[in-house]
Computed example of a mutant assay.
Amino acid sequence: MAVAPLRRGLPIDEPREGPPSPREAARWITTDPHRRNPHINERLPRLLDHCPELKLTHDLVRRFATMLDNHDAAPLPGWLSELAGSGLAPLAGLAGALHEDRHAVVQGITTPYNSGVNEGRITDVKLQKRIMAGRSGVSLLRHRVA
């Protein structure tokens, strides 16, 4: 039955694309437009047209990415007020958290330095400690991490 339309020369339906998962949509939004796949650059505007909240989120994320790329924190206060006034609870919560730590956020935007390597090592140590479940002391932990 599946091959019969082919034998008769009937056109075959094109497979439909399903909507992206929330994780895919988040990755599309956060990825630099120049680094995205052309297929994604074609699908993302259609997705944003269907969801105004997602379009607002995309615009805010792109503006924050511009601040990071340019190492310019001058637009941050206006961006935070737009984030808080977006009407979306998760973004408003993020705006509150960033506003409380705005001095650290400004430092993170304007300086090329970060503590990523140290944070990674701390995460590794905590993971090893959890894996060991308190079975031994510092000497074994030091041996496993080194």
Rank of each mutant, 00 (worst) to 15 (best):
M1D: 08
A2T: 12
A2W: 03
V3D: 15
R7I: 04
G9P: 10
P11D: 12
P15V: 11
R16S: 11
R16C: 04
G18C: 02
P20M: 08
S21Y: 06
E24Q: 15
A26D: 09
R27C: 05
I29M: 14
T31K: 05
N37A: 13
R46H: 14
L47D: 00
L48H: 10
H50Q: 15
C51T: 13
P52L: 02
E53W: 01
K55S: 15
L56D: 07
H58I: 03
R63L: 08
R63Y: 01
T66P: 00
M67W: 06
L68A: 07
H71T: 05
D72G: 00
P75W: 06
P75Y: 08
L76T: 02
L76C: 03
S81Y: 05
L83N: 01
A84Y: 03
S86Y: 06
G87K: 09
A89I: 07
P90K: 04
L91G: 04
L91R: 09
A95N: 05
A95K: 03
A97K: 08
L98I: 01
H99S: 15
V105A: 07
V106L: 05
T110A: 11
T111H: 11
P112Y: 02
Y113Q: 14
Y113D: 13
S115A: 14
S115L: 10
G116A: 13
N118V: 14
R121L: 14
D124L: 13
K126H: 09
K129T: 09
R130D: 04
R130K: 12
R130T: 02
I131W: 00
M132I: 08
V138P: 00
L140P: 03
L141S: 12
R142A: 14
